[in-house]
């Protein structure tokens, strides 16, 4: 998760990647997912956390999570 730790993430959802100078925006759930990832949680654990707190079923939450993870990988913010 070292790559995620190198990002500058503001509580407003603004993400700055110092290594490339790129910036990104994310929303509340996105910020939450990133913080879980930083804590080293697995995908299943994150899905579990999200379904506990939000009104969403595990299948939808999982589908969204994997799409989000794909985006992080594509932008090389995650291994």
């Amino acid at each position: 998760m070292s790559k995620l730790n190198s990002l500058a993430i503001s509580e407003n959802g603004f993400i700055f990647k110092p290594s490339t100078g790129e910036s990104f925006t994310t929303n509340e759930i996105g910020l939450l997912i990133i913080s879980f990832l930083k804590q080293g949680k697995t995908a299943d654990e994150i899905i579990n956390e999200i379904t506990k707190e939000f009104d969403v079923d595990a299948i939808s939450a999982g589908r969204d999570l994997y799409e989000y993870l794909d985006f992080l990988k594509r932008e090389k913010m995650l291994d």
Binding site: F24, T25, I29, G30, V56, D64, Y68
Partner: peptide, 21 residues
């Protein structure tokens, strides 16, 4: 306890010079 409203997680790259939301 009622659960919070769920939103799809979104991650978007900021493209400089391109209009944002």
């Amino acid at each position: 306890m009622s659960k919070r409203i769920y939103e799809h997680p979104v991650l978007r790259k900021v493209v400089e010079g391109i209009p944002n939301k």
